[in-house]
Amino acid sequence: MILSKIQNLRLGYSEVFYNHKKYGVTRTDFNSGRSIKIYAEELGGNDFVSLNYYITNMRENLKPCEMSESKVIDFINNYKLI
């Protein structure tokens, strides 16, 4: 489910709503889509969300960048596309 929500974000830059605030989101894919980087920044605020997602032959791996996994999962599960 996490992967499908990540893939719903457009490649490159887009904007979403999360927690009643607007975020600018950049999605970059590497290795034919097997590695995905997401960076979201609250527009006009201080919050951000950063993660890498890796797809291997054995499993999928979520790696938050300098924040809790629960914060990243909440963002991915609850953002709304504009």
Rank of each mutant, 00 (worst) to 15 (best):
S14K: 02
G44E: 08
S68W: 03
S70N: 12
R10N: 12
F75T: 13
E69K: 15
Y18E: 03
G12D: 14
E41V: 13
R59C: 01
L81F: 02
R27A: 06
D29R: 04
N57R: 14
S50N: 06
L51H: 06
S70R: 07
R34A: 01
K80V: 15
I6T: 12
M58L: 12
M67I: 01
I38P: 01
I6W: 06
R27N: 04
M1F: 14
E15S: 06
N52H: 10
G45T: 05
K22F: 00
E60R: 07
T28M: 13
R59Q: 10
G45A: 02
I6H: 09
I36K: 01
Y23A: 07
K5E: 10
N57G: 15
N46K: 14
D74I: 00
T28V: 14
S68K: 12
Y18I: 01
Y13M: 10
I6S: 11
F48E: 11
N31C: 06
N52S: 10
N78K: 08
R59I: 00
C65H: 09
V72R: 04
S70C: 02
S32H: 06
V25S: 04
L9A: 12
I76P: 04
I6F: 05
R34H: 05
Q7A: 03
G45N: 03
V72S: 04
S35I: 13
I73R: 12
K37I: 04
L62P: 00
T56F: 02
E66I: 04
N52G: 10
S4V: 07
N31H: 09
E60M: 09
S50H: 03
Y53N: 03
N8G: 10
F17A: 11
I36D: 05
N61P: 00
N77K: 12
S70A: 10
Q7M: 15
M67D: 02
D74P: 00
S35R: 13
Y13N: 10
I82M: 04
N52W: 11
E15F: 05
F17I: 13
I38N: 04
K21P: 00
Y39Q: 11
N8I: 03
T56G: 11
V16N: 09
D74R: 08
S14R: 01
L62S: 03
I38S: 02
Y39G: 08
K5A: 09
K80Q: 15
E41Q: 13
E66P: 00
S4Q: 09
K63A: 14
N52T: 07
M67W: 08
K22H: 02
M58E: 15
I76S: 06
C65F: 06
L81H: 08
G44M: 01
G44V: 09
F17D: 13
I82G: 01
S68V: 03
L11G: 05
N8L: 13
S32F: 07
L3T: 07
D47S: 15
F30E: 07
M1Q: 15
N77C: 01
Y79S: 00
E15T: 07
Y39A: 11
M58I: 09
G12S: 09
Y79Q: 07
K63I: 09
K63V: 14
M1W: 15
N8A: 14
